[in-house]
């Protein structure tokens, strides 16, 4: 590992009884970027994040965070937004954030709290109890609590869930600002379109095993390729099984087709024409969703926003 690495996982395995949640995962996350952490439900994302946070110890392998193997002071340098939100319901918003900031070693958090509350349009709620907030507001408070200490590394598990589009935009801007200020962000999300727009690199895990990692260009190079989107006049027509189609996933009335290595969009079109009337035929680069679905499989696709 180098001094540029924020997180290094070396052949990390974590088991719970007979169930292996994380299976021999290797991962290097460099400083100063937003890293998308992807995977279907139950793939081992949360366990991996907890391993990085040292909430769990690995059964095998090594976890290095900010250059430290055994935690130590690195906990203060890491902001953590867990998947399951938790705030003291009877505490006031301002007090809650000051408490979380002090826990991270911020000595005079009052002005910092005010700044963040204003930025998220929550200042009027500063003296209100957490229990009076809506789910989205509480989500924002929790997010502020995770990054208020301006950590060097932020682990955010589904920060956009429960947010309306306006607040999602505010959150997105906050993440981009964090990156600009030098914070390394690990963003676990199911929103693949958003991840594609925001993240500088990606890490995909499924059934505890790493399926891909790297920058967008590396992912495209290794797992991308051309995609075809086709829809038929007769919705009953199925293009799977046609020569030159490596995989076909239904998306509403259309199909996303994965083109085999020895085929081209033109050859596939020629194979499709005999099936019946074609309403629409488009070609393009594989999206993150396409790659995700191809790697994880159609069974996981049902739970993924497309």
């Amino acid at each position: 590992m180098s001094h540029l690495d924020a997180v290094v996982l070396e052949k990390v395995t974590k088991r719970f009884g007979n169930y292996t949640a994380v299976d021999g995962v290797d991962l290097v996350i460099q400083h100063g970027a937003i890293h998308g952490f992807l995977g279907p439900n139950g793939s081992g994302k949360t366990t991996t994040l907890r391993l990085i946070m040292r909430l769990f110890a690995p059964d095998e392998g090594r976890v290095v965070v900010m250059g430290e193997t055994h935690g130590g002071c690195s906990r203060d340098e890491v902001g953590y937004l867990p998947e399951e939100r938790g705030l003291y319901k009877t505490m006031k918003v301002g007090e809650m954030l000051e408490f979380l900031a002090r826990l991270k070693g911020v000595h005079q958090p009052a002005s910092l709290v005010d700044d963040w509350l204003k930025r998220f349009d929550l200042f009027a709620w500063k003296k209100k109890k957490i229990e009076t907030l809506s789910k989205g507001m509480a989500q924002k408070v929790q997010f502020i609590g995770a990054i208020i200490s301006r950590p060097k590394l932020a682990l955010l598990d589904e920060p956009f869930s429960g947010l309306d589009p306006v607040n999602a935009l505010v959150m997105r801007e906050a993440l981009i600002r964090l990156r600009e200020e030098g914070t390394t962000v690990i963003l676990s999300t199911h929103d693949l379109a958003l991840a594609e727009q925001m993240c500088d690199s990606f890490f995909l895990i499924h059934k505890g095993k790493k399926l891909l990692s790297g920058s967008w260009s590396e992912v495209q190079r290794d797992h991308g390729g051309e995609r075809v989107r086709v829809s038929f006049v007769d919705p009953g027509i199925r293009p799977d099984g046609v020569s030159g189609v490596a995989g076909a996933i239904p998306t509403g009335e259309a199909w996303e087709l994965d083109i085999a290595e020895n085929a081209t969009p033109e050859s596939v079109l020629a194979e499709l024409l005999p099936l019946g009337g074609i309403r629409r035929f488009e070609t393009g680069q594989a999206s993150l969703s396409d790659i995700f679905l191809r790697l994880v499989g159609a069974t996981a696709g049902a739970s993924v926003g497309h």
Partner: peptide, 9 residues
Amino acid sequence: RIAEVLLGS
């Protein structure tokens, strides 16, 4: 679910 938040700090 406050436990995990505290353990994060």
